[in-house]
């Protein structure tokens, strides 16, 4: 098979480039999800706590999500006066997308909690902050983490766009393939690594989910 020998040969020659692209992709794809996740918790709390914030905040996140990613990445340096080649432009753009997804799921997760349980917690003598971390948040986690899975996979796949504005990541392997007259090896390598990265990230979240929400997998038993 000529294709596989091409693939191996390409890897041997461009070993360090591929690794670097993978490392950049990890940074560009995953850092935004982490930031978005952390930010979505207080925002989700606000949406649930102050009902009037729900419509404006969730509408805003839907609107942000509809902005084409390439446009957003190109506009950010203008707004924040960052260098046009700064990878953080992509990180910020993907954080906005991640946030747009996660604020909604965090709010949904927090409002899905049985109010009777929250009431019981209050009646036990929980103060509000401790109660939120000890009762509300854990009970919202199944929904919140499902949202995180979607946001992570979306972010990792969207990170390829960075290559179009000259920033690293696995997307660079695609553009390289096109530049070489649709030469398959870098395209295939980029595609496989990008998908593998999304799958592994998803798997990690599933494992974390299993570990931190054991009560969701129970059936009533004797």
């Amino acid at each position: 098979m000529e294709f596989f020998s091409d693939l191996v040969e390409y890897l041997e020659i461009n070993y360090s480039t591929v690794l670097e692209a993978l490392r950049d992709h990890l940074y560009i794809g995953l850092v935004p999800v982490v930031i978005a996740f952390v930010l979505s918790l207080p925002l989700g709390f606000l949406v649930v706590r102050y009902g009037w914030l729900r419509v404006p905040l969730l509408t805003l996140s839907s609107v942000l999500y509809t902005i084409p990613s390439l446009a957003l990445i190109l506009v950010i340096p203008g707004i924040l006066s960052t260098n046009i080649l700064d990878p953080n432009n992509v990180v910020i753009a993907l954080t906005i997308y991640g946030l747009a997804l996660l604020v909604r799921t965090t709010a949904d997760g927090l409002s899905s909690i049985d109010p009777l349980i929250v009431q019981a917690a209050t009646a036990m003598g929980y103060k509000p902050v401790r109660r939120w971390f000890a009762v509300d948040l854990p009970l919202a986690l199944p929904v919140v983490l499902s949202g995180l899975r979607v946001a992570t996979v979306a972010s990792v796949s969207m990170a390829s766009i960075a290559a179009l504005v000259g920033i690293g990541g696995l997307g660079q392997l695609f553009t390289r393939g096109f530049q070489l007259g649709f030469y398959p090896p870098p395209i295939v390598i980029g595609l496989v690594l990008s998908v593998a990265l999304a799958v592994v990230a998803d798997l990690v979240i599933v494992l974390v989910q299993r570990a931190v929400t054991p009560w969701t997998r129970l059936r009533q038993g004797a």
Partner: peptide
């Protein structure tokens, strides 16, 4: 309120147990 409540037992309809504990 929180201190007061810790000194008063509370049983709620359908138990109101914490499902995650």
């Amino acid at each position: 309120p929180a201190d007061l409540r810790r000194g008063i037992g509370y049983v709620i309809q359908a138990a109101g147990l914490f499902p995650h504990r």
